[in-house]
Simulated assay, not measured.
Amino acid sequence: MEAVKEKKEASKNPKKEAIIVIKGLKKSFGKKDVLKDINLEVDRGENVVVLGKSGQGKSVTIECIVGLLIPDGGSIKVFGDEVTDMNDNQLKELRMKIGFLFQSGALFDSMTVRENLEFPLTRVLKMKDQHEIDERVNEVLEGVGLVDAVDKMPSDLSGGMRKRIGLARTLIIKPEIMLYDEPTTGLDPITSREISELILNMQKKYKTTSIIITHDMECARITSDRVLIMDNGEYIAEGTFESLQKSKNEIAKEFFKDIS
């Protein structure tokens, strides 16, 4: 709970700078309108949690932010630059500033933990100094508490450990923005809480700005500075975790009905 207390104290800082600005975002697949009119601003250093049932467009939104999907309309500005106008090289440069943690962790099964962590350093950042590479690897493993796993294969790790290594590999390039897609899916309650607190600690250590998609209400409680609820391709409620607990919105009530 100490981490949660520190998070709430930090959130009192009045200085704000929006580094993700989305206006009128629309995206359809065939006849299905997945995103209808999405408007969102995320301030530097802020953790924004997005709640919503499956198929509501939560993951589509963050895929549009990094240019993996092309929206049908609207504007996405990251660090002041319009993502929808970027060419391939500009998108590559942008993605070097954004960490994307997939549900599976997306580790390479044929590589050791060390090799998985070295991959973005040598292939993306083109680092060649092995001493500097080793220092980066050790730093992120210390951060996620898995220094002893450096020479293990992903198959030797538990689900929670794979999530931690996936997070370490994403953080190793020191992104300014983190996008989390269901970071606690498939984990037991204790491990889910550990991952949630780790996300919060990484926000403090690396001063990242994050969007966290989750169905896990405890994850939302621990990590969020602000919570948005998505339904039918739109945000229908917004506020702090505590304020939404008192919301009269019927959909919000469904999410918070079992929260004491």
Rank of each mutant, 00 (worst) to 15 (best):
T61M: 11
A3S: 15
T185R: 13
F255Y: 04
E6K: 13
V124N: 02
I70T: 13
Y180A: 00
L141G: 08
F241Y: 05
K8V: 06
F255A: 04
V50E: 11
L198K: 06
Y180P: 00
E82S: 03
F256N: 01
S54M: 02
F255S: 06
D181Q: 12
N87R: 02
E142A: 09
D43E: 13
F119Q: 03
F108R: 14
G99F: 00
T170V: 04
I65C: 04
T61A: 06
K5G: 03
K97L: 08
K246R: 15
E17W: 10
I236P: 06
Q103R: 02
L25K: 05
E6H: 08
L167T: 07
M202F: 06
K97F: 04
P175R: 08
E132W: 05
K5Y: 05
R221Y: 01
N47F: 05
E63T: 13
V66I: 07
Q90F: 05
I259V: 04
H215E: 00
K128N: 06
S11N: 11
R226I: 14
F255Q: 01
V137E: 10
L69A: 12
N89Y: 14
L117S: 06
S28L: 13
L40T: 12
K32W: 15
I98Y: 01
E132T: 03
F102M: 10
K92S: 07
I70Y: 11
K31E: 07
V150D: 02
P183K: 00
P71T: 11
D181T: 10
S54Y: 03
Y206V: 01
I222K: 04
Y235H: 09
E6W: 12
D181A: 03
E118I: 09
F29E: 00
I20M: 15
I259T: 00
D85V: 15
S210K: 08
E142V: 10
K8R: 09
T209C: 08
K257P: 14
A149Q: 15
G24Q: 00
V4K: 07
D225L: 02
L68Y: 05
G160S: 08
V34S: 11
D188S: 09
G74V: 07
N232G: 15
S104E: 07
H131W: 13
K205Q: 04
L228F: 00
R114E: 08
D109W: 10
E9H: 13
I236Q: 05
G233F: 07
D72H: 03
T184S: 01
I177V: 10
S11Q: 10
M153C: 13
E234F: 13
K53R: 15
G159S: 02
M178R: 01
Q245T: 09
G73W: 14
M96T: 14
F256W: 01
P183A: 00
C219S: 09
I165H: 08
L171T: 10
D188Y: 09
S104A: 09
G160Y: 06
D156G: 11
E46K: 07
I65M: 10
G145T: 14
Q103F: 04
V50S: 05
I229T: 00
E194P: 04
M86V: 02
M161L: 01
E17R: 08
S192W: 11
A220H: 15
T122G: 14
L91M: 07
M127H: 07
K248F: 10
F241T: 01
I22D: 09
L228Y: 04
I22S: 05
M161V: 02
G74Y: 10
F108H: 12
E197D: 12
